[in-house]
Each structure stands twice: as C-alpha cells, then as structure tokens.
Amino acid sequence: MTSTLFLQYLFAGITYGFIYAIVAIGFNIIYNTTGIINFAQGEFVMLGGMISITLLQVVPLPVAIALAVLITMLLGALIEIVFIRWLDSPSVLRMIIITIGLSILIREVARHIWGESIRSLPYFVGNEITTITIGSVRISPQVFWVIGVCGVMVLGLSLFFKITPIGREMRACSSNRTAAILCGINTRNMVTLSFMLSAGIGALAGCVMSPITYTQYDSGTSLAVKGFTVAILGGLGNSMGAVAAGLLLGILEAYSVAVVPLAFQDAISITILLIILFVRPHGIFGSSAAARLKEF
C-alpha cells in the first residue's frame, strides 16, 4: 500500500467513523434518559437525507437541510409522544419490539414516498470531481463537511450537556430518575427532548453524508447496527467513547477493503460487535463501573 493510498483510506475511514459516532451518540442520548435502545435510530439519518433531497427542489440547500433537520426532530418528538410516553414502565423486550416496529414502519413509509431508487444531495461545494489536494492526497471537500459538521455536533452536544440548564437536567435525569423527579425535573419532557435531539443530530448527519454515501429508503438498518456496535464499543452511554470507537471502526472498515470483499464489509463490523459483546460488553473504553455512571 502506497502512503498516498494509505492516507486516502484513512480519510475515508475518518469520514465514516464520524458518521457512526453520530449515530452512536443518538443511541446514547435516548439510552441515557430512558434506558431504551431506539432501534429506529438509523431511520432518522435516512429521513434527514430524504427530506432534504425533496425540499431542495423548492428551496436552497441550507434551508432544505435546516428544514429537514427540524421536520425530523418533530417526527422524533411525535414518535415519543405517540408511542413511548404513555407506557408505564414497559419491559425491555416490549420496548425493543416497539422500536423495531417503528423502524420498519418508517422505512416502509419512506419506500412508498420515495421509492426504492438511490438518491443524494448535491455536493455542498463543487461536484463529485472537485478535490482538495493535501500533499499527494486528493480529497473531496465534502469529506471536510462531514468531519467538520460532525465534529461541531459532538462539541456542541458536550457543551450543551455541561453548561446549559436543560442539558444538566437531562444528565440528572439519566443518572437518577427518581431523584430528578424529586428535584422537580419533568423527566417526561426530558425524554421527548432526548428523542428530538437524537433525531436532529441523526438527520443532520444524514444530510452531510448524503452526497458521499447516497440515501436509500433502507440505508438506516446497517447504519443502526454499526452505530450500535460503536455505542457498545465506546461503552453504552459514553459519547466521547463513541467518537473514539466510531473512528476506530471507520478506519478498520476502510482498510479492510484491501483484504475482504466489499460484500462482506457489514459482516466485519458485526463480527466486531459480536466479539465485543462476548468479551467486554461494557466497551473497550469504559470500565464496568464507569459504564454505570453513564456520563455523557
């Protein structure tokens, strides 16, 4: 492998890694406030991409993206209010099945609205052959959009949870719900908010990645599995761990192309998932004790 190719793969890996990290953080946000793994997380990403592509026909790109994120957030809130909110301490099994059902439903609605064709947003800057050259490596500017936007999201979220009062309330809610209720925090609203937030970041990631990875009605499933892998790898609930794990998985996948046929690529991340689940279910970056603290 030449050093140019090596770097090229590295950038591809980082790009995907950030996307996986965002999906994983989406899982974490909802998990932290509710203890639920939302199996429909990947569908938020798909919805972001699809809605913005449709809106682009009538409004300029930045507006289309902003609206797509907003609409997906509203959908996230709607889902929580309609399907989750009124359930009184449902079992884990019940929640798993409900969110799986939701993911299928969203996917099928998407299939009926947008069909089975593969779509994409245009490149934000230039087109598919525009490249930026760094040394000997040529990289599409969209890659920097993905890395930049996802990076900003990660930073923004961590500031949000540390500094803003609402963010703090959400954290309180995640570390001890009963105590949070006693302190007068409306945990129900916090749960709705967490669905909106994770829908929003998913949708935004879905927009910036669309030009590179394309969007199809069923692209959510494999993203969800990979996002979950990353969430587990980084320690469930630990979002800085998710970023590190996302980059690790992204880069690993990128280099694996050199060794394993493309068709088996999904199988790689799943094999990693299975191995991690068997060996260290609390993640490689978290200790089991720290996993229980569920720090953002």
Partner: peptide, 15 residues
C-alpha cells in the same frame, strides 16, 4: 440480556 441479546442475534442474522 435485553438489548444486547437482541442486537447479537440480529447481527448473527445479518451475517
């Protein structure tokens, strides 16, 4: 258990 079992069996199915 729970989510972990669900995802692990799902992963097996996908493989």
């Amino acid at each position: 258990k729970g989510h972990y079992l669900a995802m692990a069996t799902l992963g097996f199915g996908i493989i």
